[in-house]
Each structure stands twice: as C-alpha cells, then as structure tokens.
C-alpha cells in the first residue's frame, strides 16, 4: 500500500518507496522532486522564490529554491539517501497573468532558472522538466517508478 502525502506551499517532505507525494496548484511556484532509487527514498519541495539571499524573511527555508534543496537533501540523507545518487524532476514556474513586463511578474521564470542552477551546483542531474507556460499544474510524484504525473486544466495530463 502506498500513501499519498500532501506537500503545501513553501513546504518539503521525504518519503520511502512506494509512497507518493503531491502538491496542488503550482503557478509560478516550482515542485522539485528528488529520488534515490537505491535507497528507495523520494522527496518533494514546493518553492515560491528563487533565493533566500536577498530576502528579509528567510526563516522558512522551504520557501526558497536554494535552501529548500539543501534541506530536502539533508532530510533524504537522514532516511538513508546518498546525495551522489539523487536525480531530479521539476515542474511549475509559469506566468499566470500577463501584465506589462515587470520583472516581479516573471517570478516563475526566475524560479525555474534558480532551481536548475541550484541542482547543478549540488551535482544533481535533472532527468525531466516541465516548466513555463501560462497555466497551473498539480503534480504527483511516484517514489516507486520515479514518474511525475502532471495535471493541468485545459492542457491535458502528462507523465515525465
């Protein structure tokens, strides 16, 4: 029996195979899914912002791409995962409303860039990504198969 665990906004969780992780309604936010197939440990983070560096409030580390990835790795290591074996799949980072060209509204794009950069720094290979666009995503990550199911409204369903 596999459980389905909810990951909230600015939240992260690690599970053992075959549990699944879900986060709903990703817009500009990004769902980062990590997996160690050997240790059978999976994890998901739902980040809102690219970097904790400029933020005035950075106590909630799961909110930012950089600190969320660090903490998720630690959490997964605690369950027996090895950072060297981790692979990643990511989804989200869209721009829901198109008002002018203000940088603030392009937060989704900035999030996606930051996540790719942080994972690169940690030496974690990105197996698949589904980012950008102007629509929301609900994602379910299967820690057994490593499949990431992406649900949308009007853009169908896909597995990456």
């Amino acid at each position: 029996m596999s459980n389905l665990l909810q990951v909230g906004m600015a939240d992260l969780k690690a599970v053992r195979t075959p549990d699944r992780l879900m986060t709903a309604g990703l817009g500009s936010c990004i769902g980062i899914c990590l997996l160690d197939r050997i240790a059978k440990v999976g994890g998901m983070a739902h980040i809102m912002l690219p970097s904790s560096q400029q933020a005035r409030s950075n106590q909630n580390r799961a909110k930012f791409a950089d600190t969320a990835v660090e903490d998720l790795i630690v959490e997964m290591e605690r369950m027996g995962a090895s950072p060297k074996r981790l692979t990643a799949k990511i989804a989200g980072g869209s721009q829901m409303f198109n008002i002018g060209s203000s940088e603030i509204m392009k937060i989704g794009e900035r999030n996606a860039r930051a996540v790719v950069e942080v994972l690169g720094q940690k030496g974690i290979r990105i197996l698949a990504q589904d980012t950008g666009g102007n629509y929301g995503r609900t994602i379910i990550f299967d820690s057994d198969t490593g499949e990431l199911l992406i649900r949308t409204i009007g853009q169908g369903e896909r597995i990456i």
Binding site: M9, A24, G25, G27, S28, C29, M48, S94, Y135, T138
Partner: peptide
C-alpha cells in the same frame, strides 16, 4: 485556472 496557481 487552478486557484493556487492564480494566487501564488
């Protein structure tokens, strides 16, 4: 779209 996506 999804409420969460429009809000986030």
């Amino acid at each position: 779209d999804m409420a969460g996506a429009l809000l986030d």
